[in-house]
Design a binder for these strands. Structure first.
Lengths: 217, 217
DNA sequence: CACCGCGTGGCAGCAAATGGCCACCCGGGG
DNA sequence: CCCCGGGTGGCCATTTGCTGCCACGCGGTG
């Protein structure tokens, strides 16, 4: 059975029961933590996760490097790991979030349309097995959070992300500065800082790099 | 058995025999046609492909949209299809070329280092099955060449790609124009044209888009 | 031949971005 | 209190990017 829903609310309402109580295996792939569930939900869930892992649940979470760029998400990932979840970082952007619960139910997220995302939820074995295989491959190709943190990549805070967001939108510096409530000079300082972090010599290069790191969404 | 070689010559010399005569199934995933085999080889191969398909060989080729941006590759893909190969276009950049021959031998390409690419060739069943699964998933998620051509995406010729290359390198317009042997004015016209094709309002945006389409490699 | 369309290049002017310099404010230490 | 350091913002000079305008050359057509 496969259905398509629009927006997270409808998703939760219609399929929440399928994903609430995984018993054996819970897989999750996403660009970062923000795109999927809201912060409040995350914060309350840690204890629950630890408990379920004790009961024999395997949790594997696969993120893009975008999940490591802000401090809050970074800390949450470490918490997840402490709670017994496995966390890896993939080299790709993972623009379509995926959740597979006990290989019995799956959610695939689509692109955002008019502020809402479209989700496909299914219990079809064929679909789930296929995506599960892809997940496995991606998982195998990804590196552990520990290894990832051992190297280290541009540390971009919420402010930095906001700047990238402005750039991605195509605004001029002046408009972007107004929107962020800072002066033109400061905004440009931030842009320069982003380019330094991304090791880019031109804005075009910075765009490519940001895209690669999944920061331009 | 797994080996790593540097450069296409060494690859051909040491592993050519493993991939020369596929009988059942030949899978190939790559960003575009240029990155893998040279043009001459491609041109002569069409007849051979048709013949093998007659003998029962299944050929599936998965490319990124970058393979559709120049006319020559476009035509070659249509030729491949005529010869009986299945061709699909994936939404991702496919930066690592993959070839799987009869599920018995596999090549994975790495990044380019000092002008040469590094390849890993293997006959390990475990590795091949894993990647094969990923290929399947990617294949299922990709759309056929026919469907892809039905929509249509930016048509970027060799010149346009050269421009994107310059931009990716981070050169100033002046340096890039010199290197391409055109005037500053003309170079900028090309850049503007690229931005139009990529539907970008700023160079940063264009960079992101080019990255998404696998054109910034 | 004249005429046209098209790609190119030079020039000019403007907009955008980049970065140096200095002044300011603020929160710690001496 | 003064002083210091870091983030901010204004001002300004320079560079870089963007584009309209016009001219030139080239190949095709009437």
């Amino acid at each position: 059975m496969t259905i398509t829903v629009h927006g997270e609310k409808e998703l939760a309402a219609r399929t929440g029961h399928l994903f609430a109580k995984p018993e054996r295996e819970f897989l999750c792939a996403a660009a970062d933590l923000n795109t999927w569930s809201r912060r409040e939900a995350r914060v309350t869930a840690i204890g629950d996760i630890a408990h379920r892992v004790q009961q024999g649940l395997t949790i594997r979470k696969l993120y893009s490097s975008a999940a490591l760029t802000d401090e809050e998400q970074r800390l949450h990932l470490l918490d997840l790991r402490s709670a017994g979840a496995q966390v890896r970082i993939a080299a790709t952007a993972l623009p379509h979030e995926t959740i597979i619960s006990d290989r019995k139910a799956m959610i695939l997220a689509g692109r955002t349309i008019r502020g809402e995302r479209e989700f496909t939820a299914t219990t079809s074995t064929i679909l789930i097995e296929g995506v599960h295989a892809m997940f496995e491959a991606a998982w195998e190709g990804a590196i552990t959070l520990t290894d990832y943190l051992a190297q280290d990549l541009p540390h971009i805070d919420a402010d930095g992300k906001a700047v990238l967001q402005m750039l991605t939108t195509g605004l001029t510096d002046e408009a972007a500065a107004r929107r962020m409530g800072v002066s033109l000079r400061t905004y440009r300082r931030r842009v320069a800082e982003m380019m330094r972090l991304l090791e880019a010599e031109s804005r075009f290069q910075a765009g490519v790099r940001a895209g690669e790191l999944g920061l331009a969404g």
